[in-house]
Amino acid sequence: MAACVGNSCIPGETLQEERQESSDIRKVVLGDGLRCNIVASSEEHSLPVITKNGILRRRKPNIYYVDSYQKRYIPSKNDSVIGIVTTKTLDFFWVDINASEPAALSYLAFEGATKKNRPEINVGDLVFCKVVLAHPDLEPELVCVDSTGKKGNLGQLNDGIMFSCSINLVRKVLNEKCRLLHLLSKETPFELVAGINGRIWVNSNSLRKTILLRDTILKAEHTPYEEMSNIVNDFATELTGIP
């Protein structure tokens, strides 16, 4: 059986269509949910096989991936994640990033940190960081600086509230097609940090407003892109009651 771009696909189906469609371009990039050679002893072994349930998507020129539902995070390089510091050891903070094991965050991976000048982070604090090492055989490694040593948007998250959601909701909120954040920012000023590991942090000038923002974002999970303005309108009417 062969899967088609834009349609639902199930594990075990093969990706066949790129053969005819793009015979001139030889290189095909396989994203999430597609693998080669998982089943040995098969005449179709050279064709990529689908390993997830969802919708097969294609991004030009030749990137294929499966859009599927997921709650558990599997670390991957360059992802921006929100972590909770669980342990402090001599050289590392151990951070829970919703993956199978805690990730290591070095004391020195902060802006301006030296051996003498350690960052003031305690157990239970939230940190927004980037994954620099993600390999299934090793524990993930995080940093709170970019390659130039600046902290940029990364670092500790103070105040506000953090909530967990499905990874799809985070992807949806960050999607360019989704106008939710744009519409919400017209109603009230707020800060939002979305970690692709299924955690979102929001902050505004009052706690009730922050909670209302959280509820609106969670509501967006099962709302189609076109109907985002409806939930924002609901948010606006609720907001009028809050000083």
């Binding site: 199930i10 594990p11 075990g12 949910g33 693998r35 998982i38 089943v39 390993t51 997830k52 349930n53 599927s68 539902y69 997921q70 709650k71 558990r72």
Partner: peptide
Amino acid sequence: IMNSGLEMKFH
């Protein structure tokens, strides 16, 4: 398993 997003060989 389908709902959890774990990679599968088949159903």
